[in-house]
Design a protein around this nucleic acid. Structure first.
Lengths: 169, 169
DNA sequence: CCCAGATGCTTTAGGCTTCAAGGATCGAGG
DNA sequence: CCTCGATCCTTGAAGCCTAAAGCATCTGGG
């Protein structure tokens, strides 16, 4: 609904320094983003230097680990919230590295089912343990109380976002 | 504090092993990541559909906007916390679109100084206003009280992460 | 049976990102 | 002046990611 074509009020007021009260939300968002990026960058860095792997690879293995019997590429795509084409590429690279294997689904020839190999399971176990301890290290400075409060508030934030998203997906 | 080790009923808590008590940190991290990704994905989507641009382009313009006189590519690189090669590419694309212009620094011939063009300033003003209202919309479901509490707790989380990073950078 | 739409995967083009290597320039010490 | 190391930027290779198009297959209504 681009009904604001003839009302550049928003653009003007945004430049005016103190438009409405939207500054609080913006500051909160920037801090949320900074926090997440700080942690995520460090995790990516350690995955690379200590295991020569990447976060997307790790995430895909994690999905397979927690779902016995393997997953179809489509299921992985939905769980990781990325596009199908993306998963095709990740699966191909992980297959070349021998951590994962594709096998056709007997009941539906369109489907490719992905499973961890023994090596994939072993590698992921090491990576997963390290990952968990890294997170604990980075967030260990929070008290149990703060951690619980933050978890609860983020739950409300998530609910707010999903409400704001109504109609989009 | 749920330690229902033998009841992996929830999909979220489907973490098999039971080493220490690091699960709380991990759950907090996953929720933080989900929140951020949810918002960020929506912002990227709207920037693309409504302005035919991307978040990195927007971020770069924002840096230029808030710093009169232009910035060198190195300054932009540091402020955006990305590599120099990345900024080179972004600047080149923005220059081709006419939103930004490169000009040599008279006092140091290694340096490229980047400035917004008139068109870049105009486009960014529209994008910025929309961006701010999107964030306000997505986080508007939180009360002022919750928002303030979340902001404070994220500040502590950031401090915890920086402490955990000591020695890395 | 047939076919039309839905579904699952792959491919392609383009952008973002990093790391590593390379070229140009600067500044300081000899 | 000259050279050495630091700084600034660019380039190239590789991976991640998306949107869109395309192919194969499945499913349900006639």
């Amino acid at each position: 609904m681009p009904d604001d074509v003839f009302h550049p009020v928003d653009a003007e007021t945004a430049l005016a320094g103190t438009p409405p009260g939207h500054k609080d939300e913006l500051r909160l968002w920037l801090r949320l983003l900074t926090c997440t990026n700080l942690i995520e960058a460090e995790i990516r860095r350690r995955l690379r230097t200590e295991f020569d792997t990447t976060l997307p690879r790790f995430d895909l293995l994690a999905q397979l680990e927690r779902a016995q019997g393997g997953l179809t590429l489509g299921e992985i795509s939905r769980r990781m919230m990325v596009t199908g084409g993306n998963v095709t590429g990740l699966a191909t690279r992980l297959e070349e590295e021998g951590l994962v294997e594709r096998r056709p689904d007997p009941s539906d020839r369109r489907v490719q089912r992905l499973r961890l190999t023994a090596r994939g399971r072993r590698d992921f176990a090491r990576q997963s343990a390290a990952h968990e301890s890294w997170i604990a290290e980075l967030l260990g400075g929070l008290s149990d109380r703060d951690r619980a409060a933050l978890h609860a508030l983020l739950g409300r934030a998530k609910a707010s976002v999903r409400t704001g998203l109504e109609g989009s997906p």
